[in-house]
């Protein structure tokens, strides 16, 4: 099976797995294409699970997370398959 070509994603890191999964549930319910991923090294000061969304959704996702009171500890952009 061939993998899709790598492309950019927005990635959010959280303080705890619980927060990450709160965020996943929220963004999923809102229709975001959200996927748990291993936290990249530059986010490694945080939870082992990070969440990625398509880059064009990053700002909107961040806004929803902020409104819901879910703290994003770090945000980055990664190349991923």
């Amino acid at each position: 099976m061939s993998l899709p070509a790598p492309r950019e994603f927005a990635v959010f890191a959280f303080a705890t797995t619980h927060d990450a999964l709160d965020a996943e549930a929220l963004l999923g319910d809102l229709g975001f294409e959200v996927v748990p991923v291993p936290a990249p090294p530059d986010l490694s000061a945080n939870c082992g699970i990070a969440l990625r969304v398509p880059p064009e959704d990053g700002d909107r996702a961040a806004t929803y997370l902020d409104r819901a009171g879910i703290e994003v500890v770090r945000r980055a952009t990664i190349l991923d398959v």
């Binding site: 797995t17 619980h18 999964l21 709160d22 996943e24 549930a25 291993p38 082992g48 699970i49 990070a50």
Partner: peptide
């Protein structure tokens, strides 16, 4: 749970998150 981002570990994490 909470120790990996592969699907089975995430499924376990989700089950505990839902339980909590």
């Amino acid at each position: 749970p909470g120790r990996g981002a592969y699907r089975m570990a995430v499924d376990t994490s989700r089950a505990i998150h839902r339980a909590r």
